[in-house]
Computed example of a mutant assay.
Amino acid sequence: MAFTLDEKFIELAEAELGIRFPDSFRNRMMQRNGGSIEIFEDVFDLHPFYDTTDKRRLKSSCNSIVHETQTARQHYGLPDDLILIARNGGGDSLCFQILKNGELDQHVYLHRHDVDELQPVAAEFSAMPVTT
């Protein structure tokens, strides 16, 4: 279940990751912290921002963007310049890329785990077909 989100939780994640998320992504996640996206007939579940407002929100946000990104880097070889924002059931993920200047690219990328390849799927998050 996705809830609204206070911006302070996005700011905490940004501080931990050392980046600033694109405004279109921030705005969407403040309206609904989670949900899913369909790309190429495949459903990707959005990772929420960790929300400690109450027990229900805490429980539904344990698979946070920060946690999933750090876990994928440590255990699955996700490149350090990627921020994981969604995953399908088969190991592929949607992500943002950190540019050489430290800023986050506005494009949303599909990271195919089996070939370790990035494919742009949207020029910005607001162009994504959010289904729920």
Rank of each mutant, 00 (worst) to 15 (best):
R20C: 15
T132G: 07
E103D: 10
D6V: 10
L46D: 08
E38T: 15
T71R: 09
D92T: 02
L110Y: 00
P120V: 15
L110H: 08
V66E: 06
I37N: 05
H67K: 12
A13F: 09
R57I: 00
R28V: 13
H67N: 05
R32K: 14
H75R: 12
H107I: 02
D116I: 00
E16F: 07
N63L: 10
E16L: 12
N27S: 10
V108I: 12
N88G: 06
P79R: 01
L46H: 09
E41T: 15
H75W: 07
D80K: 14
V43L: 10
G34Y: 12
Q74K: 14
K55V: 11
I65M: 15
L17D: 03
G34V: 11
I39T: 05
G35V: 06
S126K: 15
K59P: 05
S64D: 02
R56F: 14
V130H: 08
I83K: 04
S36D: 14
V43A: 08
V130F: 04
R32P: 03
E14I: 06
A2M: 08
F49T: 08
G34N: 05
D114P: 07
E38A: 07
C95I: 11
G18K: 02
K8H: 02
L17H: 12
H67E: 00
D6A: 13
I19C: 01
